[in-house]
């Protein structure tokens, strides 16, 4: 039995969808930050458009992550040695979202400071909250993945040892 292909597919999809939550909700709808908003505050039309370019690039790579996850999921579904577990997949989606938040939060917010979740007097609290939300997602995802260990039936067939 090989859970690896389903794990990687689910995590990639979770990373991609989590990235889109960040990009769509925080960059575009709430407009709390942009990719480079700490280095290049979007306070002029030109700066806003330059930030828009880097946001677009971020979205492009997020799309590639999602697409790769979709391809991996399709391939995993064709294999007879991969257990088709809803709990494992849901856990991977949550874990992938959490992984995105933790990695992006640590690198972009804490380490490089290219942007913060919400710039202002409470930006540290928002950044730490973002990290803890990511950790909570990772823990919830991990619990679901562990629970999915009992699922052994592959998609449309029996497990090949």
């Amino acid at each position: 039995m090989n859970r690896g292909p389903l794990l990687s597919a689910g995590v990639m999809l979770g990373v991609g969808l989590g990235g889109f939550v960040d990009g769509i909700l925080l960059h575009q709808l709430l407009q709390w930050h942009n990719m480079l908003s700490s280095h290049l505050p979007p306070d002029t039309l030109v700066n806003a458009k330059v930030n828009m370019f880097w946001d677009g690039l971020f979205h492009a790579f997020t799309w590639l992550m999602t697409f790769s996850g979709l391809v991996l999921l399709w391939r995993a579904g064709l294999r007879t040695d991969v257990p088709w577990s809803s709990r494992t997949f849901a856990g991977c989606l949550l874990g992938g979202w959490g992984l995105f938040n933790v990695v992006e939060g640590l690198i972009d917010h804490q380490l490089l400071g290219v942007h913060h979740v919400r710039t202002g007097p409470s930006q540290v609290a928002w950044d730490v909250g973002f990290l803890f939300f990511g950790l909570a997602l990772l823990l919830a995802g991990g619990a679901l993945i562990r629970a999915g260990r009992g699922d052994v039936t592959p998609r449309g067939g029996t497990v090949r040892a």
């Binding site: 090989n2 690896g4 990687s8 995590v11 990695v103 690198i107």
Partner: peptide
């Protein structure tokens, strides 16, 4: 960094 985490997951999931 994310790819560096996910790639081993793909190959090390055998149980």
């Amino acid at each position: 960094v994310i790819l560096a985490v996910v790639t081993p997951l793909h190959f090390l999931g055998r149980e």
